[in-house]
């Protein structure tokens, strides 16, 4: 009887260890798989030809990713420029000023914004942001815009990353000990001065980590961006032009790429590119956040 129990125990522990190790390896398996698939295109072209040129003619064997890379960077930059100040202000308010009742009201708002699927943001974006840009905003600056543009992508993305930044920031602000604030108040500083000179300065690494996390999320966001960006393979000249971020490229061309091995390889290369950048960004920001946790919780 005891033998059976011990055997069960052993099997269960082996199984758990096995699965855990498998999950650890998953990261490498995904990376290796994508790399293996992108080797054909990497043998044909130099890395610079792939990421430094913008000629995209898959059926002539030209795979310049520059337009897509720049589109991704521009859209992300717009999103961060809008989302960061907004989330910073809101999270300072939530952690330093707001009453418990307001906090309790706000937390499902953040949850829901984080939980709404990208495709719903896409629907909302095409119904509201796109016509807003086409009819109201773009005419002030340029002759014509369909509204499906870099700006639309940036705006929709901004809303999608706000909950990520806020949830990381409020956690960081709450981790800063109350004593430090009280010391500042007792010296006669106002609440805002305390926030500016003590809280924000202390949490600078955390704010950077939250931003990096948000950037990596924005880089990989596919559906919402795909639905509002216009997806045009020319280099965008203004924020009212259509653009074509990398994830949208992958999503749009998956069906047809199978006809051409080098095309498939090129798209897998772009997935690899996304994967590597996002893994690095995520690892970096997590390590910073872990440091912060160690500093304040132990």
């Amino acid at each position: 009887m005891l033998k059976i129990r011990l055997l069960k125990d052993k099997i269960a522990r082996r199984y758990m260890l096995g699965i855990t190790v498998f999950c650890l390896l998953l990261l490498f398996i995904i990376g290796a798989g994508l790399l293996a698939k992108s080797i054909p295109v990497l043998q044909e072209k130099t890395l610079w030809e792939l990421i430094g040129t913008s000629s995209w003619k898959p059926f002539k064997g030209e795979f310049g990713f520059l337009t897509f890379i720049l589109s991704t960077i521009y859209v992300t930059a717009i999103a961060i420029l809008i989302a960061l100040p907004l989330s910073l202000l809101a999270s300072i308010y939530l952690s330093e000023y707001a009453s418990d009742r307001i906090k309790r009201f706000f937390s499902p708002v953040i949850d829901l914004l984080a939980g709404i699927p990208p495709v719903i943001y896409g629907v909302w974006g095409t119904l509201t942001i796109v016509p807003l840009i086409a009819d109201k905003i773009a005419p002030l600056f340029v002759d014509f815009s369909t509204g499906y543009s870099m700006l639309a992508g940036g705006l929709v993305l901004a809303i999608m990353i706000v909950p990520i930044i806020i949830s990381v920031l409020t956690e960081i602000f709450n981790a800063i000990p109350k004593d430090i604030r009280e010391a500042s108040w007792s010296l006669g500083a106002t609440k805002w001065e305390t926030v500016k000179k003590v809280v924000l300065r202390r949490s600078l690494p955390g704010i950077i980590a939250a931003t990096v996390l948000a950037v990596s999320r924005a880089f990989g966001e596919t559906m919402a961006v795909l639905m509002v960006c216009g997806n045009f393979t020319d280099l965008p000249k203004s924020i009212f032009d259509a653009c074509y971020p990398l994830p949208a490229l992958i999503a749009n061309n998956y069906g047809e790429m199978m006809s051409l091995p080098s095309y498939e390889s090129a798209l897998m290369f772009s997935a690899l590119l996304l994967f590597v950048i996002i893994v690095l960004f995520n690892a970096g920001s997590r390590l910073i956040l872990d440091q912060i946790n160690l500093k304040y919780h132990l």
Binding site: C23, L26, L27, I30, L34, L213, S216, R217, F219, G220, E221, T222, P247, I250, A251, A271, L274, F275, I278, V279, F281, N282, A283, R286
Partner: peptide
């Protein structure tokens, strides 16, 4: 944490 951050398209 890193796997969590990998985009769904990947």
């Amino acid at each position: 944490d890193i796997l969590y951050g990998i985009p769904s398209i990947v």
